[in-house]
Amino acid sequence: MDDFLKSKLGMKWILLLIFMMSISFILFCCHTGNSVYCRYQFGKLRFCSDTVDWGTIYLGRTYQKCLEIYNPDTMKIPLRIVNCISGIKVYHKSILAGPLLHEGINILVKSIDTLVFEFQPTDTNSLGTFKKEFILEVDHVLLFSHLLMQAQIQEEFDTIKNSSDYPQLSMSDNFWDFGTIQSGEKPCHLFKIRNEGNGNLIIRKIEASCGCTAVAPRERIILSGEETILKVQFDSFGKSGKQRKSINIFSNDPKNPIQEVLIQGEVEKF
């Protein structure tokens, strides 16, 4: 009987030991997996990504993204963000109501920490493709590699989409072919922008692709039935062959907030 009880007690201890070892193994795997997941090197620290990508977001709303950081060192490592980006605040996960990360935090030894990025775009000049970089200081060393913030920012029009008072952007044409261009030439084309709606049309922003210059219209507010001119210039210097460029016009037209204009040409070298 004693041997039987001892054997049962022994089995319980063995099972308990196996259970504890399993838990330890799982925790080890989780920790190791997360540290491997943080594979982007920033000085002595490793980040889970080198970019905070917000995707498509809207003016006036608030968005949050988290970023994990791993310290593989045997000493705690100080981290600080040097510059500011309008509309974006950075917090440590444990001090959301406390100071910004610009004052610096310490990433503890062999630990994974989390930064919280809060973005509230309010400036209409940020419409379209948003790309800004945070400059990092790790262990008191200013890094050459920066942390990228990117998003596609749009305006929201839910309140006026069904209203008869909204503006309506109309183009004389949204495509122009310059034909054959000699390298170094800078041909221009004038596009007419007309407001065929009932409300005032507001040109928020003009965004041109590389090698293309779009001069914003003198009249940013176009009354109902009126029009303005958008001047687009293509710089062919250093280019050859067929070229195709785009210009995006951001406005308060709720049904067409982003109007794309295309130009193209064949560049010949002397």
Rank of each mutant, 00 (worst) to 15 (best):
I88W: 01
S246E: 10
D3A: 11
I153T: 09
I23N: 07
I105E: 12
C38V: 00
L67F: 09
E156G: 04
G197P: 11
L15M: 10
Q259E: 09
N34V: 11
E137N: 13
E219Y: 11
I247V: 15
I258L: 01
I249C: 07
L230V: 02
S224M: 00
Q259T: 13
N162K: 14
N200Y: 00
C30A: 08
E207M: 09
N71D: 02
Y40F: 06
R194I: 02
F175E: 14
Y58M: 05
A97N: 14
C212S: 10
F28D: 02
V82M: 06
P99Y: 03
I18P: 01
T51S: 15
E196P: 00
C29K: 10
K231E: 04
L59V: 13
T129A: 06
V261Y: 02
I26H: 06
F157I: 07
F134Q: 12
S170N: 09
S224A: 14
M171Q: 03
E103M: 08
D2E: 14
K110H: 13
S164Q: 13
C212W: 06
F250S: 03
S164K: 15
A214Y: 10
S209W: 04
I14S: 08
Y63T: 05
F234V: 10
N125A: 11
I229V: 13
G104M: 02
L79W: 11
V116K: 01
L143A: 03
G10N: 13
G60M: 04
C210Q: 10
F191H: 12
C30D: 02
T114G: 01
Q154H: 13
N125H: 07
N256M: 12
L17E: 04
K131I: 15
N195Y: 05
